[in-house]
Design a protein around this nucleic acid. Structure first.
Length: 441
RNA sequence: GCCGGGGUGGCUCAGUGGUACAGCGCCAGACUUGAGAUCUGGUUCCCUUUGUGGAUCGGGAGUUCGAAUCUCUCCCCCGGCGCCA
């Protein structure tokens, strides 16, 4: 959540930010209106409680000296009646106040392009030599602002056909027992998946990240503090009859693990590499990417997460992006980095980079990773602070994908097959134990 | 799931109806050439920050003039039993 004090002092900042996101900013006016009323009531509640406490103390000493306390007791009862009325009203006001505050998004950073639609994300840089079909060359050059290197290829194969031909997955039987967007992974594809995971864990360990697998379920109120309404509604599965949700990313349990803690500044920055299953309803994606394992209800992912001091978070955002880019370079997947435009930014993020891999058969760049700086927004909801000489301050949190396992397998299948063989990226060979997948495997 | 013991500031813990103890740690100041020791103050949140203000003892509800303390309920931790990869 945002800083309420800052909202009071500086509502224009939030107004501007919401306008940039093409959201209705009138809730800010409503907040200011009811916040004033809430403060007024709070003052009165406090002064009535003060009276009650004072009289209560009088009763206490009178009881000890044996005096008659009935009149004072009646006075307190009277105060309690008044309090009940004001407190009830004020609780209702406070509920609305907090509901509004939770709807106000993070303050957008200055370099974020103000626009709607993913097609208006701003190209930052690209890398790699892409395999591009003739009809996709225009699209490719357009997406890289003319800077992209490529080789023209005549034919591509979809990852679905490749998996079928090489006996790497069973999608139909998964659909039979679990419904759409599920899959059985088979044979060398399973080895490839485990190799990607192991490679990613080593990569982050070597760079100062503490690697961990978090609980795959967390309680509903914790999810709520770690994310926003849109994610909650579109992505999160709830366990029937329990106050538990399946995580949609390891970001949430990792962010929440320090909930309600005050850290020693010496502990910062804290760099966490999270590996976990991810469960997503994909409620807002009906009809999109329905074939194969590109968009599924269950996948695995290695995530980067950083808790840091406020002054360091923008540098760490570049570091996170750099890590993900290096992984893609090492794997040999051509990619581009875009600065996500204001209209497509989630409420938590002040700025977000999407890192998109080139998928030759789809003929376009698709999201493989996203790197966000949430500033103090997520940490304030989770109440994570650190000690400073001037008192406790809210820390900053950042998150970024390192390896989205299933999607990365699709990228590898599309980029490294010639139809007869699939070539394993060199950095993965020590982990897979083989360098090629053949149709007969 | 059952039985028992617990949950109090960053940490360890006292507190069985009347203003939340103490120690440790940490921060600042004093003393010191410096460090240590010592001393003083501070070290949860809220109210447009000062007021002998309010809230806060795992969460919520109740009894009472007044609840860390009594009642109900939920959550979590430790030990034992049961079950079990």
């Amino acid at each position: 959540m945002i800083d309420i004090k800052l909202l009071r002092e500086n509502p224009e900042t939030f107004y501007t930010s919401m306008k940039k996101r093409f959201q209705d900013a009138s809730i800010i006016d409503r907040f200011i209106e009811i916040d004033a009323k809430w403060r007024e009531n709070t003052k009165e509640v406090n002064s009535l409680r003060n009276k009650r406490n004072t009289i209560s103390l009088q009763i206490s000493s009178m009881v000890k000296s044996g005096g008659n306390t009935q009149e004072l007791k009646d006075q307190v009862k009277d105060i309690n009646l008044k309090l009940e009325i004001i407190e009830k009203e004020n609780n209702e006001i406070d509920n609305e106040r907090i509901r509004i505050v939770n709807m106000i998004p993070n303050i957008i950073e200055d370099t974020v392009p103000v626009n709607k639609g993913d097609e208006n994300n701003k190209f930052i840089r690209g890398n790699g030599i892409a395999k591009v079909k003739k009809e996709d060359i225009k699209e490719y050059l357009n997406a890289t602002e003319g800077t992209g290197k490529y080789v023209e290829i005549a034919e591509t194969v979809s990852h679905v056909d490749t998996m079928e031909k090489f006996n790497l997955a069973d999608l139909e039987r998964a659909t039979k027992i679990s419904g759409a967007r599920f899959y059985f992974t088979k044979n060398r594809l399973l080895k490839l998946e485990l190799a990607l995971i192991n490679y990613g864990i080593d990569f982050l360990s070597e760079r100062g990240f503490t690697v961990m697998e978090p609980p795959p379920m967390i309680s509903g109120d914790v999810v709520w503090k770690a994310t926003d309404q849109a994610t909650f509604d579109d992505a999160i599965y709830r366990i029937d009859g329990e106050n538990l949700c399946l995580i949609s990313t390891s970001e949430h349990p990792i962010a929440a693990m320090l909930m309600n803690e005050t850290l020693d500044p010496k502990e910062l920055p804290l760099k966490i590499g999270g590996f976990s299953p991810c469960y997503r309803k994909e409620a807002g994606a009906h009809g999109k990417d329905t074939k194969g394992i590109f968009r599924v209800h269950y996948f695995k992912k290695i995530e980067q997460f950083i808790f840091c001091r406020p002054e360091d978070s923008w540098d760490f955002m570049e570091e996170l992006a750099g890590n993900t880019e290096l992984i893609l370079q090492n794997l040999g997947i051509p990619y581009r980095v875009v600065n996500t435009c204001s209209g497509e930014l989630g409420n938590l993020a002040a700025k977000k980079y999407d890192i998109e891999g080139w998928f030759p058969n789809q003929g376009k760049f698709r999201e493989l990773a996203s790197i966000s700086n949430d500033l103090d927004y997520q940490a304030r909801s989770l109440n994570i602070k650190y000690r400073t000489p001037d008192g406790n301050a809210v820390i900053h949190t950042l998150n970024g994908t390192a390896i989205p396992t299933e999607r990365m397998m699709v990228a590898i299948l599309e980029n490294f097959t010639d139809g007869d063989e699939i070539h394993i990226p060199e950095v993965l060979i020590p982990y897979t134990g083989f360098d090629t997948i053949y149709a007969e495997n």
